[in-house]
């Protein structure tokens, strides 16, 4: 199978899954937008209405962080279980195992396109004038996507080897939810050194902050930092492709047994 054919196959699998998912629910494709917006609403009620976060722009601040985080967490969580969930196909066809997590990530990408469109509309409605600086968001989205693919491959491999990793990854996402500056501002920590530390050790916190800097304040992301995160994601991704290709039959045995 050629590389183009492999990408077409992953894309076809993603589009079919999306169609099947939409047909299961009464509200169909509306859930692409509704689910993340309900998450934002829950966080808004808790942190703004009940705990009074005290920012005039809290809704937009929250949306920039939470919507990108949902893309990451949902894609990685679902992709982590993808090889095991597809064991029927794994036992029938000798296909590279990266196909299954990639199809799930592709599904998330389609959903996220609609979510980003909504985010841009909300920003515009709240008085954030679109400018050329918004184009800085493109490299941020690309690096975010590469991080998702790399983590999806790692997760899918780990769950295939030991099913318990499914629980650990799910718990890890909750940990990242609290530590990546989604409902609190990483730039407003009491100690500036702590801000530097969080941004340095948690690439997701850096990416979420970069979305806000670009979309809310028209500030370009820290290019070198973004480049390092991007290169790290590509290196991990390529490493996982090699590992999963070399151990394709072992992963099949683990998924089937």
């Amino acid at each position: 199978m050629s590389f183009v054919q492999y990408l077409r196959l992953a894309d076809t699998m993603a589009r079919m899954s999306l169609r099947a998912e939409a047909s299961r629910y009464f509200l169909g494709y509306i859930w692409w937008i509704l689910e993340p917006m309900l998450w934002v609403a829950v966080f808004y009620v808790v942190f703004e209405v009940l705990l009074q976060a005290g920012r005039a722009d809290f809704l937009v601040f929250l949306m920039c962080g939470k919507l990108a985080f949902i893309w990451f967490s949902k894609s990685v969580n679902q992709a982590a279980n993808s090889i095991v969930m597809n064991r029927g196909l794994v036992g029938r066809i000798n296909v590279t195992k990266t196909l299954f997590p990639l199809a799930v990530v592709q599904e998330g990408l389609y959903r996220q396109a609609a979510v980003f469109l909504l985010l841009f509309c909300v920003l515009f409605a709240w008085g954030y004038t679109p400018s050329l600086a918004w184009f800085y968001v493109v490299p941020v989205i690309v690096v975010n996507y590469l991080m998702i693919v790399a983590c999806a491959y790692i997760g899918a491999c780990l769950v295939c080897l030991v099913r318990d990793f499914s629980m650990i990854i799910s718990l890890g996402m909750t940990f990242l939810l609290f530590t990546s500056g989604i409902f609190w501002d990483v730039r407003h920590l009491p100690d500036p050194a702590l801000t530097e530390l969080v941004l340095a050790v948690n690439p997701l916190a850096f990416i979420l902050d970069a979305y806000r800097q670009v979309l809310m304040f028209h500030t370009p992301p820290a290019w070198m930092h973004l480049l390092w995160v991007g290169c790290g994601a590509v290196a991990l991704l390529l490493l996982m492709v090699v590992v999963m290709r070399r151990n394709s039959q072992y992963l099949a045995l683990k998924a089937l047994s």
Partner: peptide, 23 residues
Amino acid sequence: LGFRPDLSGRDNAMLAAMLQGAT
């Protein structure tokens, strides 16, 4: 084994053909 229950027969046939190497 290998059929995805939430997809139609047409989609499953299409997927099966592509998995076997068809464009």
